[in-house]
Design a protein around this nucleic acid. Structure first.
Lengths: 145, 145
DNA sequence: GTGATTGTGGGAGAAAGTGGGAATAAGTGG
DNA sequence: CCACTTATTCCCACTTTCTCCCACAATCAC
């Protein structure tokens, strides 16, 4: 499971060192795609392929389905982890998520996210906001037992 | 699977270098045809034959089906990849998709698309639109786990 | 302290993308 | 049927980019 958060650097070739704790999960490679909040999502092979299969089964004559295809696949890329435990983030994705040299890597369970520091800070501020936290999650029905 | 996006150039003979990542999928050649959004679609042999079989099974007494037939087959062409990894895009298709020297190659899973930069930018703007996104993904109840 | 691991940087060879010449094939008009 | 023009195919050459590999500093474990 992907946990915690890390501050890492992209080198000038666009490579990102994966936190060592994550590497076992990405041994067979990974998929990266654009997230929903100006960030990037890195998923295991299984998670991505299950997801993509649903989109691929939709008709290509349906305009909305075509949009969905483009959204998912044109922003997606297959990744391999190199010997030093790094992945190469394609240029168009760095651009899409506003990534400079500093990035924040955030574990969120089944996948992890890559953020620019400023976007992450905004997000972190929302998490800190006690008011938001207290009633925002009331709609969910969660019991730990 | 066709993923990602690339900015390539057509030379003055109308040839397009296929992204290296795509070449294995097109080893046995490919089919190209006009898309539904002022773009071109390049499909593997298998994907095209499945698609065309579906269209050929449609009744020729249905006017819409006849239109689809004409679109698919009259604008379709069989392609081979040359030694340098390029395909030759027929003139009438370059015209149909408004292709000049710069083109954008977009992977969409089972096939890939060829766009003029301006048409793609319009499309990308729609994809970037958050409302569209949530609208599209609302179709799914997505959980990666 | 010492050895292994982690994060970072960079160089060299290989591959990718691009362009063009020359031979071949195909279409056109007499 | 033949000459002519146009388009297509097959090479080869060049530049840029990428990928693989190694090196090094900092950190962690014991």
């Amino acid at each position: 499971m992907f946990l915690g958060q890390y501050q890492h650097n992209l080198d000038n070739k666009g490579r990102l060192t994966i936190p060592a704790r994550y590497r076992d999960l990405l041994a067979e490679g990974a998929y990266i795609t654009q997230g929903f909040d100006r960030n990037l999502m890195v998923m295991t092979v299984d998670a991505f392929e299950a997801f993509s299969q649903r989109v691929r089964s939709m008709s290509i004559t349906d305009p909305k389905a075509r949009l969905l295809r483009r959204l998912l696949f044109s922003k997606g890329e297959r990744l391999e982890v190199d010997k030093s435990g790094r992945i190469l983030i394609p240029q168009f994705l760095r651009q899409a998520a506003n990534l400079d040299s500093e990035v924040v890597v955030v574990g969120v369970g089944d996948y992890f996210e890559i953020w620019s520091p400023q976007n992450w800070n905004e997000q972190a501020a929302r998490l800190q906001d006690a008011e938001t936290n207290s009633d925002l999650f009331a709609v969910f029905d969660i019991s730990p037992g």
